[in-house]
Design a protein around this nucleic acid. Structure first.
Lengths: 237, 237
DNA sequence: AGATTTACCGAACGAACGTTCGGTAACCTA
DNA sequence: TAGGTTACCGAACGTTCGTTCGGTAAATCT
């Protein structure tokens, strides 16, 4: 793999994909097979890595732990990335990009400031609970990456923050309310990110129900308990 | 220091104190001076350790980092505790015990379910922001300790949880409300513990003001913005 | 078929880790 | 003032760390 950085290969495809070699090629299907094989194996490594980082923390997990979990030799791991730090970066970037992408997709089809906030919350919790390991690693290791990679993740984080802030300011405008946007966003993120510290799927509500409870709590507080909406309809007008 | 475990010495005094040697003693003032000197030095070490754990995480901080921060040799540190793990334990236990003690003290003098919840939140934020390093270490490293020490910290945590839960259930009863106590407690803890990830004293409100904002948000939600109470009076009847 | 690239692996690298050991000055008690 | 305790420290212990190197069998391209 010549110069080999995964980062250098990151462009479009699922996990960033592998750079398509330019030049004459009779069939491109073979290339795609090679590429997606690499990507599938990388994705598997990332899944196992997320699980171990989740259990032991980034600093507490050793590359030997990861190799054991992935069923691959220590040296073999380095075929897929250049360093432990890049591994964390790939996990965080993929999770963040995906949750933002999905939020934007769902918000495109939702009108009404309050409903949009509810959809944002539901999207967050749904993705969070379906990808607990990676999302814990994203939230818990949020100051771990430094320099370039850290800056890039922090930029994505600000983007997500801004989406939420705008939803809340729309709500404030629409209903003529008064509250601090910053405190509201950060209070909301606290509620919904804290979940990784306590949620037990055998005891607690599923993502959809939890989103409703959390939305009611955030929107109405404990003193004005929720108008329990039965379903969050995917309004398209 | 004979058998030397700090843990073996933990009984009453500030940080656990040093076990008072039993036996005949003409003056006990000398013993107290020795004891408090040890405690003062230990407290200083713990303060520096909390700062480093806060910056680099427990696993990411080395004993050499700690020795540098405390201005003491690596070996010298071990005069005050037996292991890195015990150091984390001492930091967490002291913070947790203190915040609970203060909450109970303040709640003794407060009537009215809503007011008691507000006092609980204000106590939490006040201690949290005044002891940011230690409180971040307490919240961030909440699954780090294992076995005996871990169980002990988790027991204190449950105690704190229960205090909050009872306040909320009192509120629910007093006002005839309906909400899930568990979700409310955990949502509230999310809001107020998440603060360590964003609070900047140069930009953000101080503890008292923040407590008011957070209390209003939690109690009334963003749709029913807060009855801004000017002062939280220390009611004594 | 021969040449190249891919996908690994065993073994080793030097650095850093938490902890311990043997000392030694300063202080306290008797 | 002799004897014991306290409060450290320099140097080293064995282990584990992230990463690299040289190799190889299989897959792919020409």
């Amino acid at each position: 793999m010549a110069l080999s950085t995964v980062e250098a290969r990151l462009t479009g495809a699922p996990l960033g994909g592998r750079k398509i070699r330019s030049g004459i090629s009779t069939t491109k299907s073979t290339e795609e097979i090679v590429d997606s094989r690499f990507d599938r194996r990388l994705a598997k490594v990332l899944r196992h890595a997320a699980r171990i980082f989740c259990e032991k923390g980034y600093a507490g997990a050793s590359m030997r732990d990861l190799s054991r979990a992935a069923g691959m030799s220590l040296a073999g791991l380095y075929h897929y990335f250049d360093s432990k730090e890049e591994l964390l970066y790939l996990i965080q970037k993929h999770s963040f990009r995906t949750i933002i992408e999905r939020a934007e997709e769902r918000l495109k089809n939702t009108r009404g400031a309050e409903q949009r906030v509810r959809v944002f919350i539901e999207n967050h919790l749904e993705y969070f609970l379906a990808n607990k390991d990676a999302m814990k690693v994203l939230t818990h290791e949020d100051e771990t990456l430094k320099n370039g990679r850290g800056a890039e993740i922090r930029a994505i984080k600000r983007e997500y923050y801004r989406i939420c802030l705008e939803l809340l300011e729309d709500l404030r405008r629409e209903k003529g309310l008064q509250f601090s946007g910053r405190i509201a966003v950060l209070g909301l993120f606290g509620m919904i990110n804290w979940i990784y510290t306590w949620h037990n799927p055998r005891v607690d509500l599923n993502a959809h129900e939890l989103a409703e409870e959390m939305s009611n709590l955030f929107l109405c507080g404990v003193l004005h308990p929720g108008k329990t909406k039965r379903k969050i309809p995917k309004a398209n007008a």
